[in-house]
Simulated scan of single mutants.
Amino acid sequence: MPGMRLSVIAVTRHGAALGRRAAGCLRQQGHPVRLLVPARFRDGTPGEEAFSGPLAGVIAAEFERAQGLVLIMALGIVIRLLAPLVRDKRTDPAVVTLDEKGQFVISTLSGHLGGANDLARSLAAGLGAAAVITTATDVRGRPAVDVLARQYDLAMEPFAAVRTVNAALVNGEPVTFCSQFTLPLPQADGIHRLPWEQLRTGRINGWLVLITNRTIAPPAANTLFLRPRNLVAGIGCRRGIDAQPVREALERALALAGCSPLSLQALATVDLRAEEAALQIVAGERAVPLFSFSRAAIQSVYDRKEHNLNFSHFVYEKIGVGGVCEPVSLLTAPRAVLILPKTSHRGVTVALAEVNSGWWEPARAMPRT
């Protein structure tokens, strides 16, 4: 779990000393860490911050800011302070609790999706402590679909089914996994693997966990979709366009490709349109980044002639390249394949590119160029 933004908070003198050890350990593991201790226990360690206000306010602020909290205090205090803050396991940060002697690292909140179980294990290993994990799937040594979703950046649909499927896995009831993409699917008693090409003909007992970005009718009533976030939508538009045509064009493109909106990983466009409010609004609504690329980078895709891209003389005369939506989608995800070529709707062009593997790797996210 490299790269989690973590806050370590201690409340006693001995807890502050342990906090310094914990922060150092977590930084060595690749996490950016803030260490917060009461002002009277601060000793000048670089990166250490003092707090003097109420502990409840400090934890509430870090709960909103950080991806994970390491709280060195009694578990009862932690529960009371977290109670008014907890909202949704999909968005709540990971929380682990340490006793001030550093004997136990307790996964307290968001064990699976937030990563608290993994955080507890890695921190316990670094401190020589015991990790305390209480989630049933972990205790029983069974796989959990929300762990799989977190590991491979999969959106769960419907989310309400996750608990039921995990319960089935814990209880050894039949669960079938079928994936459109090559993934190391879990292995355990009661878990069946169905090849993608046998989805319509294979026998399914119990729950079906279907890993696909396609909007297909499930062959079983009890189906949990895991949607890989592996689609990039390249978008071209005129200057000053409203957001609604962009929304419609994107929705139309996804429908034409038969793909779920939950699988969108990013939007992309030419640098000349990077500041367009309509594109920024739609990216915000979809909770995905908006990447942009220079005309030189776009031209390089045409020059390589690796893809049979559409070329518009009108667009070339306007901005100096023969197209936007297709090349920018491929620039955003260099290993992607174009699954929907240029489509047009109300002055907006959209193309879709799909990444077949590795979409979950942070290194695949491309910065603006």
Rank of each mutant, 00 (worst) to 15 (best):
V37L: 08
I191Q: 07
A253N: 09
T201D: 05
A124I: 03
V175K: 06
S294A: 08
R80C: 01
A66T: 01
C237D: 03
L338A: 03
R87E: 06
T201I: 04
G68M: 04
V324K: 07
S300H: 08
A120N: 07
R252C: 12
L85Q: 08
G76D: 04
L26K: 10
T343M: 09
S312V: 09
L231F: 11
C237F: 13
V170K: 03
L123G: 06
S179Y: 06
N230C: 13
G47N: 07
A50E: 07
A333L: 14
T137L: 00
G190H: 11
I298F: 11
V355Y: 10
T343H: 04
R346Q: 14
A125L: 12
E275G: 11
P186L: 01
T201M: 04
H345K: 06
S110E: 01
A130C: 11
F104W: 14
H307D: 05
S122F: 02
L18Q: 02
L169H: 12
S294G: 14
G3C: 02
A160F: 12
S292I: 00
G115M: 00
Y302M: 06
F225K: 11
G141D: 06
E285M: 00
L267T: 01
G358H: 09
Q280D: 10
V315K: 11
E276F: 09
P32F: 00
R20D: 05
L338K: 03
G111H: 13
V232H: 11
F293G: 00
L81T: 05
A257S: 04
L199G: 06
Q28N: 13
F41I: 12
L330Y: 04
R34T: 15
A363E: 12
I298A: 03
T332I: 03
S329A: 13
V170L: 10
L55Q: 10
L231K: 06
R20M: 01
L26M: 04
I211N: 10
V37N: 08
V350I: 08
G115I: 00
I339E: 11
N166A: 05
E361H: 15
G322I: 05
G234C: 10
N213E: 14
G114R: 02
P341I: 02
D271M: 11
P334W: 08
L26N: 08
L75V: 13
I235C: 13
P195M: 07
Y316I: 01
A125D: 13
A253S: 07
Y152A: 00
F159E: 06
R239C: 15
N308F: 12
R5M: 03
R238N: 12
V301D: 05
